[in-house]
Design a protein around this nucleic acid. Sequence first.
DNA 1: GTGTACTTTCAGGAAATTTTGAAACTATTG
DNA 2: CAATAGTTTCAAAATTTCCTGAAAGTACAC
Lengths: 166, 166
Amino acid sequence: MNLPEGKDKFLQSWGAFGSSWGVNRTMAQIHALLMIAPQALSADDIMEELKISRGNANMNLRALIDWGLVFKELKAGERKEFFVAEKDMWKVVKNIIIQRKKKELEPMLKVLDELSSVEGNDPEAEEFVRMIKEIKLFSSKADSTLDTLVKADSNWFVGTFMKMIK
Amino acid sequence: MNLPEGKDKFLQSWGAFGSSWGVNRTMAQIHALLMIAPQALSADDIMEELKISRGNANMNLRALIDWGLVFKELKAGERKEFFVAEKDMWKVVKNIIIQRKKKELEPMLKVLDELSSVEGNDPEAEEFVRMIKEIKLFSSKADSTLDTLVKADSNWFVGTFMKMIK
DNA sequence: GTGTACTTTCAGGAAATTTTGAAACTATTG
DNA sequence: CAATAGTTTCAAAATTTCCTGAAAGTACAC
């Protein structure tokens, strides 16, 4: 396979992959594009490669920066901004975990907490509270596990973890 | 908080949570409703509680059954079908992992494999292949880790895992 | 074999999400 | 400080995804 074909296939696949995980297609594609780029790209480069508007490029780049997956890079003598992606996969995944934990898991835990105080002694209320507590227990465990994972370092993960859990 | 309020809040939150993870809102809500139900519900019960159409209820119920998160239950003397959710959270998560691994992670791995054979010796092609290989390595590790996790049992996860990885 | 009770399907409509593009904004240059 | 180069914003349009409802399908009962 040659480069343009491969590149295109990667951009498509990464976009679709993101899509099915609740990340908008374009954001995933910009990320993909920057990950495989040998140097920093400008907004115009990205607009051209992905055939997207300036507004779209700008908004998704900012989101990627928020997530810690992309950085601005200023080139001496150039007025425009350039962008580079974090290329260490362990850091990429770590940042994604941190963000999604904060934006999705933690708010859910808070809701579950509130819900476990539902009153009532009919079977419906009892089952509700029982199940909420089971979900909460599980989610808290997942939350702490992710905390630990995020603190651990890359080598540990790729090297030791798999053997450990065998 | 009383039951109807709590129930509503849970259905809303679980729907939104699903949504942000690429699961359609209604599917997540049906799942939520069945998880907290003390007994099996019929399609009509679900339609009424969630104010959705028969078609919608039916399609999402089938998807949930596919995912191993919901089962049909036939009641003696009743012609209609009833539905119950898997209530063991560990099994719920395990089934979700199995399905998403199969439907999303594994196809991605296949694509990455094809892409790592891209030809070319300019810096762009070299960086492309280098990065694809890094992503593939990481993804394979994640894939095997999930395999191991799925084989492990609930007690092991909730009990030992956390201490182990500290 | 006909009626009845229920389930499934899917084309078209509705809703949610994403994208565009042009105007407003900001910063740098001469 | 005016001109230029670039970035950001956001209302409206485009697209994608989801839902509805009616028709077709299935299965049991009589």
